[in-house]
Each structure stands twice: as structure tokens, then as C-alpha cells.
Nucleic acid binder design. Structure first.
Length: 326
DNA sequence: AAATCAATCAACCGCTAAAAT
DNA sequence: AATTTTAGCGGTTGATTGATT
């Protein structure tokens, strides 16, 4: 399914339909070399002006293209692989309320991009909902029911509490699980130099450590990849499978591993009892802390009183939704 | 075996809003 | 205050690939 990048190397002039274009910027699929350049640049310099990134990273790309590539593919906190059932349900719920506001929906699905959610919707969900004789939740110009809003809230909380690519705020830590695994809080912004440098320096050890850990079958908090300094500790558990298809540079490989590990934490979280415990906490309306903090600035509205506008406006202020890149 | 169709999804485009100059 | 630049969004395209004829 992967399209092959332009066969020309990264310094060659761009072409479309075999016709050379007369500006010097490349378009189309990204080559592994270009990915390397962008990744390396982002890891060492962090996020800045995208036209500067394009220029300084030695890429014959416009800033817009670099931004897109980073956001949708290279970002280390991205989930990969198919959407889970939970995610799918949440997408449907959110779409019933938010409509085609893909970025708003993505903001509530940690590690997922607006683009992939949009693609997923257009290629899969839309069709499925169409076939099922219940178009109710698929039309966005319809007012959501109170029940839907309740479900939405519940799902949002659930997803957040089970998310690893989340905030480093202490409110999340309160829900850390009592297992060998710990949450891996991401810093508030991935542009943070410290964080990127830490990751960078750790990547070299990444591969070997996981192979070793997998060989032993078990890993505890004392093993695996630890990233510290400046933030809490970030623990990256072992890969569940060492099946690494395709080649790629070491950088690619390490980063893929990193992303995959993040995903594994997510699935680990779900595999534990967290799922039900968390839901019970929420259902018992005993959820304090973040939720109430959030309500403070919002005149303590009841769920049934939420409006679409509230939902949209509050994305950035919702305390459990702060994983978004600033 | 070849041609056609359909699905997927990475990347583009045009636009708007926000930020910078 | 006006203009330019940048970031971000959603719609759309089209290359690739797998399924079907």
C-alpha cells in the first residue's frame, strides 16, 4: 500500500507526469532519506517556523509539506495501525456531535491525526453507517441527544485515562496503574528541546534493549528505555514482537520502535483492569480533579447542557486533552 | 494472463485565521 | 494600520494495490 517515492533522488528537480517542473521544490511522496533529514532536524532543533525547517534541514520541500509529513507521519507520539473498537466508537460519537471537524475529533483521540480519521471515516465508517439502517449517528446536522453527550463524555474520559501520549500533568499520574508498567507522559509540547534531545540520545540504546527484554519475556520498571531529566521518567516497555519488516535507516527503525512502544503501552493499559475501573469511577460520578477543574471555568454545567459550541471552544482548555501540539 | 474495478490513504490544494513585520 | 507570512483546516486527488471479471 505504500507508494514508492519519486525515483529521483532528493536533490533532483521535481516532476509530475514525467514533466519536469521549473521550481526547485519537490512534491509527492517522501523518500526515506527525506524522512531522515526531517526527523533528524526535528529531533535536534525542535519545532519552529516550517519554512526554516524546510530550508535548514536541507530539504527541497516547502514548509507546508514538512509540517504535514511531521504531523501525520513522523511525530513520535503517533499511534500506528488500525483503529481499535473503542476508537472507532468514539469517532462515530464525536462525529455525530462535531460533524466533519476532523481536527476537533483528532484532538480527542490521542496519537491519531485528523487526516487518518478523515480517511478512515470516508473509506470505512461512512459506508458502514450507510449500509446499516441506522443513519442516526452519522448525520452531523442533527442535534445530539443528551444520552449521546453522556456517552461522549464517558468515552473522552476513558480514552484519556488510557492514553499514554498524554499530558505530563499530575492529574494523569493519579490514574497510574499498579503494574510493572507506568504511564508514559509526554511533555506538553514536542517542540521541547530537552525532550527531543533525550529521545535522541536514547535511541541508540533502544534496539538492543528491547531485543534483550523480549528475550527474557518480562520487563520491569527497572529495564527498558528510561528517559528522564527535565520531566518525569518516561518508560518505554519492550516490543511485543520483533518482526520488523523492511529495511530503513537506524533512525527510522528506532523511531518506529519508539512509536510502537507507545502503542503497546496503550494496549497494555486496556488489557489491564483499568478499563472497567476507570469507567466505574466515571459512572459513579466520583471523578474529581481534572473534571472539576475544568468545570470551574465553565459555571459547572451539567452534561446535558453542553452545546456544540462549548465542546469546540473547550478543546484546548479541557485538562485531559492537552496532548495537542501547541 | 490481462484488464478492469474499487478501496485506501499520503499528500496536495485552496482557503481562513493568526502572527509577524 | 496595512501588508505579508505562517499555521492549520477540510476537501479532494491520484498512485498504488488487491480483488474481481
Amino acid at each position: 500500500m505504500m507508494r514508492r517515492p519519486d525515483t529521483a533522488n532528493s536533490t533532483a528537480p521535481p516532476s509530475k507526469n514525467g514533466v519536469t517542473v521549473h521550481n526547485k521544490l519537490r512534491k509527492g511522496l517522501w523518500s526515506p532519506e527525506e524522512d531522515d533529514k526531517l526527523m533528524t532536524y526535528m529531533m535536534t532543533n525542535g519545532q519552529g517556523c516550517w519554512t526554516d525547517v524546510a530550508r535548514n534541514a536541507g530539504l527541497q520541500r516547502c514548509g507546508k509539506s514538512c509540517r504535514l509529513r511531521w504531523i501525520n507521519y513522523l511525530r513520535p507520539d503517533l499511534k500506528r495501525g488500525a483503529f481499535s473498537i473503542e476508537e472507532e466508537e468514539l469517532i462515530i460519537h464525536l462525529h455525530s456531535i462535531l460533524g466533519n471537524r476532523w481536527s476537533q475529533i483528532a484532538a480527542r483521540l490521542p496519537g491519531r491525526t485528523d487526516n487518518e480519521i478523515k480517511n478512515f471515516w470516508n473509506s470505512t465508517i461512512k459506508k458502514r453507517l450507510k449500509n446499516s439502517s441506522k443513519p442516526s449517528s452519522s448525520t452531523h446536522d442533527q442535534a445530539p441527544s443528551d444520552a449521546n453527550k453522556e456517552l461522549l463524555m464517558e468515552d473522552i474520559m476513558f480514552m484519556r485515562l488510557n492514553s499514554s501520549s498524554s499530558s505530563s500533568s499530575s492529574s494523569m499520574q493519579a490514574f497510574t496503574m499498579n503494574t510493572n508498567y507506568n504511564l508514559v507522559p509526554f511533555p506538553d509540547t514536542i517542540s521541547n528541546d530537552c525532550f527531543l534531545n533525550n529521545i535522541s540520545s536514547s535511541l541508540a540504546h533502544d534496539h538492543a534493549m528491547y531485543d534483550d527484554a523480549n528475550a527474557h519475556g518480562i520487563i520491569t520498571m527497572g529495564e527498558g528505555l528510561m528517559v528522564e531529566e527535565g520531566y518525569d521518567h518516561y518508560f518505554v516497555p519492550p516490543l511485543e514482537s520483533a518482526s520488523q519488516e523492511e529495511n530503513g535507516t537506524n533512525l527510522d527503525y528506532a523511531y518506529q520502535n519508539y512509536s510502537r512502544n507507545i502503542n503497546e503501552i496503550n494496549s497494555n493499559m486496556i488489557n489491564l483492569n483499568v478499563h472497567h475501573d476507570t469507567k466505574n469511577i466515571i459512572k459513579g460520578s466520583n471523578l474529581v480533579g481534572s473534571h472539576e477543574m475544568w468545570e470551574e471555568g465553565h459555571e459547572k454545567m451539567k452534561v446535558g447542557e453542553w452545546s456544540l459550541e462549548d465542546l469546540i471552544e473547550d478543546v484546548s482548555s479541557f485538562p485531559l486533552l492537552d496532548f495537542q501540539v501547541e
